[in-house]
Design a protein around this nucleic acid. Structure first.
Lengths: 146, 146
DNA sequence: ATAATTAAGGACAAAAATACCTTTAATTAG
DNA sequence: CTAATTAAAGGTATTTTTGTCCTTAATTAT
């Protein structure tokens, strides 16, 4: 479904929302271990999340690291997708047709449409906070280790 | 969503179902042009469709080419996904967690679940025939040219 | 039989995604 | 001020996906 980059972005952001605060920043190393992702690649993705949409924040130096503000926890998951440039994924034709539209639909267009809209809805309505709380309360581990 | 390989497999099969018969086989060249795909790469994918699941058939030599039997037109789209090894796409955790399950769910698990099932349903219930007929009647062009 | 046609199959090439590494910049603690 | 720590930035390497090309095999028509 999603690219590795997007999966890491979602997992990392949820983990950061769970564990971080302005005075408890998380290091790249901790994040990558927790969400089971390659550290260096994760670094690039976290850079996107700090730059492109300012979903998360970062501070360099000792006791530096990544954190997310309470305000930004209220952002929808959609913002994470935007940051890693995978926001248009659900907009695309499922058969990969460039010209597929309401007036020139592909054979799956109208059946895929409601599914597509549920997906968009899911990522537009769910906030980072909500996801991180679920990850807490239902002891859903982001951790991916065997 | 899908890989290029899968998109080409779906488009090609629909086109073959629209236009071919045992005594009117379609050449690789015609198919690739019609669905706007790279011919050589499409050849590989058509091989998968003839071998892995025998979704389509092929004959070499003059007046040879690809066709699909009336019987096979009744196969669900799922069979095409199986042939190109992308059948497990919808089964996977949307956050990419290996251990995600009903008892150890990721924070999106239960919200994604119904969407996932609609997708599975869509590819299990729709037959190749139904799609090709829609492509006909609603003049939905598989063609992708600008 | 021979030549022409068309898919099959294998090797190869290019592009994109994923992953790693090294240097630099910023920040903090001592 | 100096040393240590940590992310930023850039380049490089690996893997996967996508795409090409060439030879071989099968079939048909002459």
């Amino acid at each position: 479904m999603f690219s590795k980059a997007t999966e890491y972005a979602l997992r990392a952001t949820i983990y950061i929302a769970q564990k971080s605060s302005v005075d408890n920043k998380l290091s790249l190393t901790e994040i990558a271990q927790a969400i089971d992702s390659p550290p260096s690649f994760t670094a690039k993705i976290l850079q996107l999340l700090t730059k492109e949409n300012c979903v998360i924040h970062s501070v360099r130096g000792p006791n530096g690291g990544f954190y997310i503000t309470e305000k930004n926890k209220l952002l929808p998951l959609k913002k994470i997708l935007e940051a890693v440039n995978e926001n248009d994924l659900f907009e695309k034709c499922i058969l990969g047709l460039k010209k597929c539209s309401e007036t020139n639909p592909c054979p799956l267009h109208f059946q895929y449409k409601p599914v597509k809209q549920e997906l968009i809805h899911l990522f537009q309505t769910n906030t980072i906070l909500e996801l991180s709380e679920k990850a807490d309360s239902e002891s859903m581990f982001i951790n991916n280790k065997l």
